[in-house]
């Protein structure tokens, strides 16, 4: 029996989304980054187009995270409270392709920094690195709306990725993104319908489709990954299947999520069967990232330098296949 490769072609295509803007485009970035554009499942080079590789962002903070694992702190101790320096280190030493500035410190119960302070930090990061940046907020609606409005305004033209809006709080931030020309993350909690609904609401207010990135809300390995994984596969399948409201590139947060869990924090003495703590922290982030890459993630915000290195290398190796053929 002669074997014939069963190829499947899809009617749909994931929207191409570009983050960042060069001087020519009205910003100050040295280059832009584009994700999306595929017409087949991840790494299925034999049956479709994958014009862009998944990219890795690393994250810096406006205030030292309350629960930052010791194993990570060892890499960042000198810069953890200096977001601009930390960004530089992530880019130059660890190969970050984008920088996410997490503005947790503006939350009224976590520091209540003002919108102006936040804007200042973002500006410093923009000055210290030349790659495109992501601005990551929180769920205190009133405050984050104020902060994001300000940040969008002071970064006008930079085409930052504003992370995130949710179904119950999208209008203000989306309007700011339109006004100051930024790209937006639409975040919904692990549900295909909710993801689609928010995308519809955004496009219904004339938000441009090529400026939407979807965050299906990552659960990390062992903490909801079983749900996220399948929700992402379903979103991608539907998007490729021709559902335009689900055909957006997806962002995940393996770094943030993995750093929160017990596995990243407890010692081998307390949990001997969990093995080496140092390795475990990186492993957890790697397994989360790679499995979700297989499910369709295209933008990963990561923390652990070892994990970044190996995931990035594996993505390139896989894409060698495409370039080789």
């Amino acid at each position: 029996m002669n074997f014939e490769i069963p190829k499947e072609t899809n009617p749909g295509k994931i929207v191409e989304v570009t983050i960042g803007a060069t001087a020519k485009q009205g910003g100050t970035r040295s280059h832009t980054i584009t994700i999306g554009g595929s017409t087949a499942l991840p790494f299925h080079f034999f049956e479709g187009e994958h014009p862009h590789q998944p990219v890795i962002a690393m994250e810096v903070f406006d205030k030292v995270p309350a629960k930052y694992p010791a194993s990570l702190m060892d890499y960042y101790r000198d810069v953890i409270d200096k977001p601009a320096d930390m960004a530089k280190k992530c880019v130059e030493e660890y190969g970050a392709e984008l920088i996410s500035v997490r503005l947790e410190g503006t939350h009224p119960e976590k520091g209540n920094k003002s919108a102006e302070e936040a804007a200042e930090i973002v500006k410093q990061v923009l000055e210290s690195v030349s790659i495109p940046i992501i601005i990551t907020g929180h769920s205190h609606f009133e405050k984050i709306n104020e902060v994001m409005k300000k940040v969008c305004e002071v970064t006008e033209g930079e085409n930052c990725l504003i992370n995130y809006v949710e179904t119950d709080n999208y209008k203000t931030i989306a309007a700011a993104c339109i006004a100051y020309n930024h790209t937006l993350v639409a975040q919904t909690p692990i549900d295909v319908n909710l993801a689609k609904q928010l995308n519809i609401l955004l496009t219904d207010m004339n938000f441009p489709a090529e400026k939407i990135v979807v965050d299906p809300l990552t659960g990390t390995l062992g903490y909801g990954l079983e749900y996220t994984y399948s929700i992402m596969e379903r979103i991608l399948n539907d998007g490729l299947g021709g559902d335009k409201m689900l055909a957006f590139p997806m962002l995940i947060n393996p770094g943030y999520e993995s750093s929160k869990v017990k596995e990243a924090r407890v010692s081998r003495e307390d949990y001997p069967e969990w093995g080496d703590q140092e390795l475990r922290g990186a492993y957890w982030e790697i397994a989360t990232s790679v499995s979700l890459l297989a499910a369709g993630a295209e933008l990963l915000i990561m923390y652990h330098p070892k994990a970044v290195e190996v995931v990035k290398k594996n993505i390139s190796e896989m894409f060698d296949l495409k370039n080789g053929d």
């Binding site: 062992g222 079983e226 994984y229 093995g275 957890w284």
Partner: peptide
Amino acid sequence: FDEAMLYTLFTLRQNIYTDPQKPI
């Protein structure tokens, strides 16, 4: 043999092979 590696893979395997229709 690497406990951290095994524990990570076991967890991933448990996640991928649970019935998505039945809660853990």
